[in-house]
Design a binder for these strands. Structure first.
Ligand SMILES: [Zn+2]
Ligand SMILES: [Zn+2]
Ligand SMILES: [Zn+2]
Ligand SMILES: [Zn+2]
Lengths: 159, 159
DNA sequence: TATGTGGTGTTATATTATAACATAACGGAT
DNA sequence: ATCCGTTATGTTATAATATAACACCACATA
């Protein structure tokens, strides 16, 4: 699924991502606490983006907290450490599918089924880097998101 | 200013953009009403992004309306017709600096002085197009935003 | 005149996110 | 053992962004 929308063994996705997060946190002395881990699991459950309040609703049912700061703190931690990305276009959050690798994510968002797929790029290569260089601009972070239709939804949406 | 952050005759920027908007609206039978025009002017005033409520505060002082729908309706019109872009990373709005030209904007946002510069790209060329093609994804809109430091703020921010 | 379309005014509410302050849990230094 | 710094949590309140819904009006045109 790093490459696209095709079917895959998603339980492996989840397991790998959790293991990567755990070992990274262990090595960096970061605390992957119960709530943080659970938020990551929820985001890994599907290749979709979830809103903070959707996540909070689940946490609340599970007795892990009821107030917005609970989920925003967990998300802050997960985003800061590269396990989760914020999808700016959706004001929503999506588990990283390339954890551990330093990378600049590029998202493809299906506006019909809400699937979100993450690809990678080199930010300083290609158009953006050229434009930034021409302008003398120093890039620190990038937001690159494409909204459209995934292959499945294209089939089911006759032109 | 299409190319970068350098100084320029900004009154010309404003004048050109307003004239372009006026003639486009005339030719398309679109109504550039008082409020819509004023919002565009406010956004043209500087190469910065303004939040909807910042704009509303000014409209309110000027007797053009006090409620959120006033500004959101004007912004909807201006965005739909390509005179203004939404900067997703900031939840804010910025006047287009290439009005009339069909284009895919790319933004460079200085997080120190809040300047926003718009460049252009071909969305289906380069990395994004390649990744989308590989995934079978049909791109309809793109969000490409770089956050960092403009040339001036780099000078004034010793490493 | 009737009717449709697009624009405005207004009230209310939804959605997303953070400020602020109190409490707890842990580790190392004294 | 006590103190203290750091990190995490609990909680209340509020800020910031955005939309739903409905009433009204102006204009075109049939
Ligand atoms: Zn990632
Ligand atoms: Zn889809
Ligand atoms: Zn533009
Ligand atoms: Zn700057």
């Amino acid at each position: 699924m790093p490459l696209g929308f095709e079917k895959h063994d998603h339980s492996t996705c989840i397991k790998d991502a959790l293991e990567t997060a755990e070992s990274y946190c262990a090595s960096e002395n970061l605390q992957l606490t119960k709530t943080r881990r659970r938020v990551l699991e929820l985001l890994l459950h599907e290749h979709k983006a979830l809103g903070a309040y959707d996540i909070l609703a689940t946490l609340s049912k599970e007795g892990l907290g009821t107030q917005p700061p609970v989920v925003y703190r967990a998300l802050d931690f997960l985003v800061a450490n590269g396990f989760v990305h914020k999808i700016e276009k959706l004001n929503a959050y999506s588990a990283c599918t390339h954890p551990g690798q330093s990378h600049t994510p590029v998202f493809m968002i299906c506006h019909k089924c809400n699937a979100v797929v993450e690809a990678q790029t080199k930010p300083l290569r290609g158009f953006l880097g050229v434009a930034a260089k021409a302008a003398g601009f120093l890039i620190e972070r990038t937001v690159i998101e494409a909204v459209g239709l995934c292959p499945t939804c294209q089939e089911n949406t006759p032109a």
